[in-house]
């Protein structure tokens, strides 16, 4: 099954499509830079998996799409993701573009506003594993370890 295509802007200034990463395994997830719970753990885990893969990590691309386009512009997402791994690419865009990307992967998100006007966002936290040919191969639920990712990535990276 082909992974639904993305039509967003990447934090490297180029258009963000999955077609850009044909030949690489893509780990796709959704989140936001102000997330204090799920996203830092997910991103740290993905960074740990790439580190553990060694040279093979060059064939793994992490794509992290914001669910908070009102606050996450390209510069902010780039800085946030670089704190985990400078190779990570963020996906940003207008509210309509982000909504379309979320819907194509079934990613739900709900805003919870605090008394001071600040807010957080509850969102789906699974990681989509896309093979070198752009096929959607598996979904890794939140909470798995670095070794779990390394195990699956080694399978997806086989020639």
């Amino acid at each position: 099954m082909a992974a639904p295509e993305l039509k967003l802007s990447a934090t490297d200034g180029k258009p963000l499509t999955l077609a850009r990463y044909r030949g690489k395994v893509v780990l796709l997830a959704f989140g936001f830079s102000s997330c204090g719970e799920v996203c830092p753990i997910t991103l740290a885990t993905l960074a740990g998996a790439r580190k553990k893969l060694g040279e093979s990590a060059a064939n793994v691309q992490v794509v992290y799409v914001t669910v908070d386009p009102e606050r996450d512009d390209a510069a902010r997402m780039k800085k946030y993701l670089a704190s985990f791994d400078p190779s990570f690419v963020g996906g940003v865009g207008s509210r309509a573009e982000i909504d379309a990307a979320q819907k194509s992967y079934g990613i739900s998100s709900t805003k919870q506003v605090y008394a001071d006007g600040n807010y957080t966002i509850g969102h789906s936290s699974s990681i989509y594993m896309i093979d070198r040919a752009g096929g959607l191969k598996a979904v890794m639920p939140y909470g798995h370890t670095v070794d779990d990712f390394v195990h699956d990535l080694k399978i997806l990276l086989r020639p």
């Binding site: 819907k103 194509s104 992967y105 079934g106 989509y128 979904v139 639920p141």
Partner: peptide, 12 residues
């Protein structure tokens, strides 16, 4: 009319 995720599977 939207994909749903169940465990390691995505249901289109």
């Amino acid at each position: 009319d939207v994909p749903q995720v169940f465990g390691p599977t995505i249901l289109m």
